[in-house]
Design a protein around this nucleic acid. Structure first.
Lengths: 164, 164
DNA sequence: ATCGCTGCAAACGGTTTGCAGGACA
DNA sequence: TGTCCTGCAAACCGTTTGCAGCGAT
């Protein structure tokens, strides 16, 4: 298992799609089938998807979209703030729907790769405090805590016991 | 200017070098001139250096070291915990000496690329709390707050004023 | 009709790897 | 003396880009 993640609220994808279309129209950019398909996959999944994941899911759904278009659309989504980019040190990027103002952060197991999301309003407060004291106006954040998940921690302990 | 960073304490590099040598000897790995040169550059700089930066600095110092060796040594340093890897979304990784238990985090200006380091014991406490409640044993963290630095914020405001 | 998008494939660029020769313990 | 490293260059692979044709407004 790779990740433990929360599902997006029902109807969330539809709302996001509406926002996406509105943003495109606002900028006089065409609302193409490909853009809709790609955004839909991302919004419905609520997971951390790689560009490759998205190409695969589209193919499964019978749609064929070029990889370049996927990258272009993902970059677009990130630029307008509807998606965020993650680097979990896998050699490629993952993307997920932007949670808007109520963001979540990540605990990452360096052993098995499990990703657990968490939320902390204290962290939000702390962010505001730090930003304020440096005069920064924060737009996004990436908070990643790397370590061992309970299961891997246990295996590691067992390993040590066997060795020593 | 790219980054505002704190200098490492005097003598810090020497201490780190000693630790590095000890770690190598412990693992029966040869202490080569290249490894020492690469580690020294990283430890003395205290900056966020790319592999390319290190190759360049070594060349300036008259030493010629292969890029592959730089990458291999950096990965080694990261693995043993004497360096940390950063991804500031530039298309390549940067490395810096590990600050040990007292770590610092980063404010990054998405406009001019300035990186400001900060420290917060509240954040350390919060990390412990979050980790505890999920049963994680944290080894490292990456906290990056992205936004506009005071200067860019001002330019952006001026821009808006001119437009509207 | 006019842009801008799409898809393909090729280019790109940072990082890794295979291998022959050399350095450390 | 054996093991591991080093350097070079090639391979790798995720991502970007050029271009001819198509689709949205």
């Amino acid at each position: 298992m790779r990740a433990v993640e929360t599902r997006p609220p029902l109807g969330c994808a539809a709302v996001m799609m509406g926002v996406f279309r509105a943003v495109l129209q606002e900028d006089h950019l065409p609302v193409t089938q490909q853009r809709e398909a790609i955004a839909q996959v991302l919004f419905e999944s609520g997971r951390h998807l790689s560009a490759e994941d998205i190409v695969e899911k589209l193919r499964e759904g019978g749609e064929s979209v070029g990889k370049a278009t996927v990258y272009r659309t993902l970059n677009l989504l990130v630029k307008v703030g509807l998606a965020v980019e993650h680097d979990f040190d896998e050699g490629f990027k993952r993307y997920e729907m932007s949670a808007g103002p109520s963001r979540h952060d990540h605990l990452i197991c360096t052993s098995c790769g499990t990703v657990v999301e968490f939320q902390s309003s204290d962290l939000d407060d702390l962010q505001a405090e730090v930003a304020g004291s440096h005069g920064f106006h924060i737009l996004t954040r990436q908070v990643k805590l790397y370590g061992l998940c309970p299961a891997c921690e246990e295996s590691a302990d067992a390993e040590l016991l066997r060795a020593g």
